[in-house]
């Protein structure tokens, strides 16, 4: 292999490593950012809830989760509870998660609740 090709491949590999660092699965993002309040089983029984004035949503509650559209779920994850007139205890994750990661999280929530609501 000549030197020029070697250098180009080296730079491309480095760039790929940097760009791939931000892509995380919904399951891993849920574990890192959501479970602290929504709990290890997603039932709203997180580590932090003891002194909360409003309890976190039970993501396995099919009936309650069915009332939320996918776009509402996207909005509340990205912009926080106040964006859909809910509690400020649900913070905005726009600086933490990409839109694609939030889309994946919405799909993950639909698996947890075993429910659907595609209304836009």
């Amino acid at each position: 292999m000549n030197n020029c090709c070697f250098i180009i491949i080296l730079i491309m590999t480095s760039l790929l490593q940097i760009s791939s660092a931000s892509a995380e699965s919904a399951k891993d993002n849920y574990r890192t950012y959501c479970m602290q309040c929504h709990g290890m089983a997603g039932q709203g029984m997180g580590l932090n809830i003891q002194d909360m004035s409003v309890q976190p949503r039970d993501h396995t509650d099919t009936k309650a989760m069915s009332t939320r559209t996918d776009s509402e779920l996207f909005k509340v994850i990205k912009e926080g509870g106040l964006a859909i007139s809910k509690s400020s205890l649900m913070p905005p994750w726009a600086d933490t998660l990409t839109d694609n990661e939030i889309d994946d999280l919405v799909k993950h929530l639909r698996k947890l609740c075993q429910c659907d609501n595609q209304t836009k």
Binding site: Q36, N48, S88
Partner: peptide, 21 residues
């Protein structure tokens, strides 16, 4: 800290009161 920005969800503001993560 508690209500407007919800910081206490994850942080204790005195021993035994607030979030733990």
């Amino acid at each position: 800290f508690d209500k407007i920005y919800g910081c206490m969800a994850c942080h204790q503001i005195e021993p035994g009161f607030g979030g733990l993560s």
